[in-house]
Nucleic acid binder design. Structure first.
Length: 105
DNA sequence: TCCTTGACGGAGA
DNA sequence: ATCTCCGCCAAGG
């Protein structure tokens, strides 16, 4: 994937406000890459561990974190979302409440 | 090359 | 609500 594609994705992710979440598909759409949700996941997976990008605000379309429940990655993402003020009902986040509209605040 | 594997998603059953 | 089955597309074997 080219540099431009990555930059578009990073730009969209960076714009997700605290306390809100966006799905991989939504990020792809907003980045001008419709139907390329998997590409977004791949790009995020390649971020350096110390990245300042709010990658944890990106979850799947079912309102769930896309990592195994028992993984460190899952716990890390969940902690950061909760610190953001995002509530979980079991393993799920209510998208009708926390889904980012896609617009700037 | 071909095949499998993903931080995915939508349509059916 | 849950579970398959496909489509999607770049990487790695």
């Amino acid at each position: 994937m080219d540099e431009l594609m990555c930059q578009k994705v990073w730009q969209v992710v960076a714009a997700i406000p605290p306390g809100k979440v966006a799905s991989y598909g939504q990020v792809a759409e907003l980045a001008g890459l419709p139907r390329m949700a998997r590409m977004v996941g791949r790009i995020l997976s390649q971020l350096p561990k110390d990245s300042q990008l709010p990658w944890f605000r990106v979850i799947n379309a079912q309102g769930r974190i896309s990592f195994p429940l028992d993984s460190d990655a899952y716990r890390c993402q969940r902690e950061r979302l909760e610190a953001d003020g995002v509530e979980f009902n079991g393993e799920r986040i209510n998208l009708r409440v926390y889904r980012w509209s896609g617009e700037a605040d």
